[in-house]
Design a protein around this nucleic acid. Structure first.
Lengths: 116, 116
DNA sequence: TTAACATATCATTGTATGCTGATACGATGA
DNA sequence: TCATCGTATCAGCATACAATGATATGTTAA
């Protein structure tokens, strides 16, 4: 390991990493529509409470979502509209590249769950 | 695990995962400027040949880069201009959110390598 | 065919991290 | 204060995957 990895590259990798997990993506997609508290997110995503909380902590640390306490609820929302834009652009790219991604066997699909 | 994870979400996660590694990002950033063969990428990124080849295989499987054999060289290039756009948009988002991502301790920084 | 170069693949290993269950913390209302 | 609800944190486990080194495949030229 000798090469220069721009600081920017490291940051970008971390940013993308925030989006690279189905659980976190589900959370972000949900928040894209409107702010939600943790319980609502648990309901919508079907993830465990601790799991959601963990991912929220991570997303918050990275500045992708912001947090506001309201009574005993904590409301989360996207901290920047461009977070949503990134998701949209990804959708567009996927519209063309989807087949490739779909067939990509290098990463493990967490088993296709195509209900909804 | 009961909840529905849209197929689209899974795909998006995989797409982002392609961008979530400094090695792959370095490769993509390099290809963003112009098509390159593997040896050039090895040189530019400082990664080992097998490592670069592995990542290229992954990026290719996912449809993010395309491959063209030219004599004994294999030229790689971004398969879609929007791949570059995603990188640009990420840069923009980072311009505002960078501090947060930088200080995000949930993910391990592969030790800051800020030379270049 | 053989040598030399370019790229791809494979097995292995270490590590990072997602998930779970239990528990702690915090806020509200009785 | 106590009970309850909502959220956060922690330890442990299982697993995915990045990196390495060795080797295989493929291409060109002599």
């Amino acid at each position: 390991m000798v090469a220069a990895v721009h600081e920017g590259t490291t940051l970008k990798a971390k940013l993308f990493y925030g989006f690279s997990d189905t659980s976190r993506l589900s959370i972000l997609e949900a928040l894209r529509r409107k702010p939600l508290n943790v319980s609502e997110l648990v309901q919508l995503t079907g993830l465990s409470q601790s799991n959601v909380s963990n991912h929220l902590g991570c997303l918050r640390d990275c500045g992708l979502v912001s947090r506001e306490q309201q009574g005993r609820y904590v409301i989360y929302q996207l901290s920047d509209p461009r977070v949503g834009e990134l998701l949209s652009l990804a959708d567009e790219v996927l519209a063309d590249v989807a087949k490739g991604v779909y067939e990509c066997t290098r990463y493990t699909l967490p088993e296709e769950q195509t209900n909804e």
